[in-house]
Design a protein around this nucleic acid. Structure first.
Lengths: 131, 131
DNA sequence: GTCCCTGCAAATCCTTTGCACTCCT
DNA sequence: AGGAGTGCAAAGGATTTGCAGGGAC
């Protein structure tokens, strides 16, 4: 493990992700952090997001189209992505252990974690379409 | 459905994805197609990959870091991604229906499909690390 | 003092797009 | 003929990186 010095900007990035649960993009995190540190740079936000993601303190989400998103909740859970509005919401589910066991057997290697995305249309967009 | 004309370049893209099962990137497909059409452009490959993916004939894979990958196999299945070598392999598994049913209930919306990625270290890289 | 971290800007990577021309139908 | 498809090159968006200065330990 590499030595790491304390940084208030990194704290701010971490706090931002712990506080909001909408799976923000790097740019959205940048805008949040800027409220506290008006001079923070986008590069710094990216550097810290990568640092935190690589060390497992936050999670990176690749939701298909668009920029990467980040999740401060590292508990195993799933994500539902609406292809109309792009919203990403959490799905607590129970099939995790069975899946991991089966997958471990299939791949022969070692599984650290797994990420599942469900794509579809959220209730709000479904309702909107009916009107 | 939009009218679509026949194109030999698109055929080549499709054939490439049906023939190889290593989930190639757009650039890898481009290199393959170039063997048959030396003048094909990367833009054309991207256009056709998007066309085919949007119409559901192939699948787009967002494997985390690096460029997007494509899969000619549209049957529901999972992917195991080695974080050492980047290799992407298929995982046939059985828990699909249960997951979809649970997720459908959780999100309240409508689920079209779902994609699951398992991250870890493949057997080859595990063996290599032991040496 | 050392070395990590930062802001800034330029660079890079991947993907899309505008245009004039070609090929299907 | 009409319009979808193409090659080319330039543009675009997202992310990374080099560098000189600033901050943590």
């Amino acid at each position: 493990m590499k030595t790491r010095k304390h940084s208030r900007q990194r704290d701010a990035v971490m706090n931002c992700l712990m506080a909001r649960h909408d799976h923000p993009t790097a740019d959205a995190v940048y805008l949040s952090v800027r409220e506290e540190f008006p001079n923070v740079s986008l590069g710094t936000v990216y550097r810290n997001l990568n640092l935190l993601a690589d060390s497992g303190e936050i999670r990176r989400l690749n939701c298909g189209h668009g920029p990467e998103r980040f999740d401060g909740d590292t508990h195993p859970h799933y994500h539902f992505i609406c292809r109309e509005c792009g919203q990403v919401t959490d799905l607590p589910m129970d099939v995790l252990e069975q899946m991991n066991a089966e997958a471990q057997e299939c791949c022969g290697g070692q599984i650290d974690n797994h990420i599942t995305y469900f794509y579809g249309v959220c209730r709000e967009c479904l309702d909107k379409a009916k009107e």
